[in-house]
Amino acid sequence: MRHIHTSTHFEIDSLDNKSIFQRKATRAIALRDEQILMLYTERYHDYSLPGGGIDKGEDIVDGLIRELKEETGAKNISNVEAFGIYEEYRPWYKPDFDIQHMISYCFTCTVDKELGETTLEHYELSNGMKPVWIDINEAIAHNEETIAKSDKKGMSIERETFLLKLINKELII
């Protein structure tokens, strides 16, 4: 799979002599014309691609499908194709490591427009996360405004906005 981008959080000046925890995750890119399936999170006031952590021993594509079903209720997931890898280094919030190295495996796929029931985790529900189909340009503009004006934004919004712009450039016809 191609490497898309590597991002290092502004608080990290060097990786030398740091303990690093690696987390592998998936991100789903489901499109219908200029509409993209996203997760809106009220707490952070942003849009993100559905996906999440890959369980130990889990196949990456199986993890993608599991996360997509859990977070969006997506049905008839098919045509899963590799899009690229987005890497990031972030400060780790627990005392056992200094830095988190997140590797996001991004895949395009096809899903039914009508979504089923979600099985969101407690923290996802408490953050106000919900699946939505949205025009990709609206999602980009919304995230850019959140980056510029909100103190609520999470650390993932830069990744999500970068990916949305790349998806728009390469996949929207």
Results as ranks from 00 to 15, higher is better:
119 T>L: 05
166 L>V: 13
109 C>N: 11
150 S>W: 01
48 S>G: 15
107 F>E: 04
27 R>H: 09
73 G>I: 09
119 T>R: 08
76 N>R: 15
106 C>T: 04
79 N>S: 13
62 D>M: 14
13 D>F: 09
8 T>A: 02
153 K>M: 06
48 S>T: 12
38 M>D: 12
36 I>A: 00
173 I>E: 14
86 Y>P: 00
74 A>D: 07
56 K>Y: 14
16 D>V: 11
125 L>G: 09
52 G>C: 01
118 T>Y: 05
145 E>K: 01
7 S>A: 13
66 R>F: 02
82 A>W: 12
169 K>L: 05
139 A>H: 04
65 I>V: 14
122 H>K: 14
140 I>C: 11
130 K>H: 09
137 N>W: 07
147 I>F: 02
64 L>H: 05
30 A>D: 09
98 D>V: 05
131 P>T: 12
64 L>F: 10
143 N>D: 14
50 P>H: 00
75 K>Q: 10
150 S>Q: 01
28 A>P: 03
11 E>C: 03
67 E>V: 10
67 E>Y: 10
99 I>G: 01
122 H>V: 10
61 V>P: 00
38 M>K: 12
37 L>R: 00
112 D>W: 03
142 H>Y: 05
50 P>M: 01
137 N>P: 01
113 K>G: 11
154 G>N: 15
112 D>M: 04
108 T>G: 09
148 A>C: 12
80 V>M: 08
152 K>P: 07
115 L>H: 13
131 P>Y: 10
114 E>N: 15
65 I>H: 00
140 I>T: 13
64 L>P: 04
162 F>M: 11
91 P>F: 01
100 Q>Y: 07
94 K>F: 09
123 Y>I: 15
130 K>Y: 09
41 T>R: 07
43 R>T: 08
3 H>N: 06
162 F>Y: 13
87 E>C: 11
33 D>M: 06
128 G>V: 03
69 K>A: 12
112 D>Q: 02
130 K>W: 06
140 I>M: 14
59 D>M: 14
22 Q>I: 15
67 E>P: 01
79 N>Q: 13
162 F>T: 11
149 K>I: 15
25 A>W: 08
156 S>F: 14
33 D>P: 00
93 Y>L: 12
77 I>W: 04
41 T>A: 01
44 Y>I: 07
163 L>V: 07
166 L>F: 07
39 L>R: 03
39 L>C: 05
157 I>N: 00
86 Y>T: 02
144 E>K: 14
69 K>Y: 02
32 R>Y: 11
150 S>F: 14
60 I>N: 09
113 K>W: 15
159 R>P: 07
139 A>Y: 03
77 I>F: 01
24 K>A: 05
105 Y>D: 10
105 Y>G: 00
46 D>M: 14
162 F>W: 12
21 F>K: 11
151 D>P: 08
19 S>V: 06
154 G>P: 06
156 S>L: 00
137 N>G: 12
132 V>I: 07
94 K>S: 12
66 R>C: 05
8 T>P: 09
128 G>M: 02
61 V>G: 04
24 K>V: 00
145 E>T: 12
33 D>I: 05
79 N>W: 06
134 I>N: 07
156 S>Q: 09
124 E>R: 08
72 T>Q: 07
122 H>T: 11
42 E>N: 06
